[in-house]
Amino acid sequence: MKHFLMTTFLSAALALPAFAADYTIIAPANPGGGWDQTARSMQQVMQQAGISGNVQVQNVPGAGGTIGLAQFSSQGQGNPNTLLVGGYVMVGAILTNHSPVTLRDVEPIARLTGEYEAIVVPASSPIQTMADLVAELKKNPGAVSWGGGSAGGTDHIMAGLIAKAAGVDPKAINYIAFSGGGEALAAILGAQVTAGISGYGEFESQIKSGTLRLLAVSSAERLPGVDAPTLKEAGLDIAVQNWRMVAAAPGLSAEQKAAVSADVEKLAKSPQWAEVLKTKGWQDTYLAGEAFKEQLDKDIAATETILKDIGLVQ
């Protein structure tokens, strides 16, 4: 039995051909979350597509990714073989935690995937449309409790943006932060809160089975296969994408940077990655180079404004 086990693993380990670059991917979150899944999917695809023979994933959880970010920027300095997975949530976390290390201290390579936010109410709720919800919010902002993820995260920012666009003081929103998607979803399903905000994927199966009513999505245009208006159609000028990206360490030479970018592009264009996106239900929002950096700067500025409006950042 033991021999069988050993031979299975040894043969699997030895069967891997040697490749030029080994990578260590830092997932700045606990196992199971979106960043961890992104990192582990990258690990799988990079090995399958022959981009790298040995890819390790390391979890450095904590504080919306800022702990992983800080560790990455100091310890990874000049190391072309380490990558960091991150995303939009990090932008808000850096601001609310007063993180001394920001995204400017690493080398953002590319945006890989994105997810749009969905606003839902339980099926039993009298609220039928986004307009109904906005009306309730205007009547008494405190009576509308929003259930979503951590304070200062994408979901919280969305609630603030909706209030602002509806002409309600974002400071007045009654946002209830839950730890993790499952707990928030349970509170929404149990009608403990008025409305829920989270990534569309979190709600998808509930919406399809009719236990949740989808009021709107945060994309700029309607999503294929999703029967709901965008926030813009509902009269609120908001478009938010909860994106995930990959960054390289600071202090790389131009060639090293180009090599990493090429590997990441190979990953994003591979059929195996397309397969991962399909099974996980992630949107492909690949954006690299200067275009990505420009978009990043815009997102950071907008996030800072709304967090100040909500009162989370002074």
């Binding site: 405190g142 400071k171 009654n174 909500i310 009162g311 989370l312």
Partner: peptide
């Protein structure tokens, strides 16, 4: 001391 410097962020 630590609690005294926390601000009461708008909450119901």
């Amino acid at each position: 001391w630590d609690a005294s410097r926390l601000q009461a962020v708008a909450s119901y």
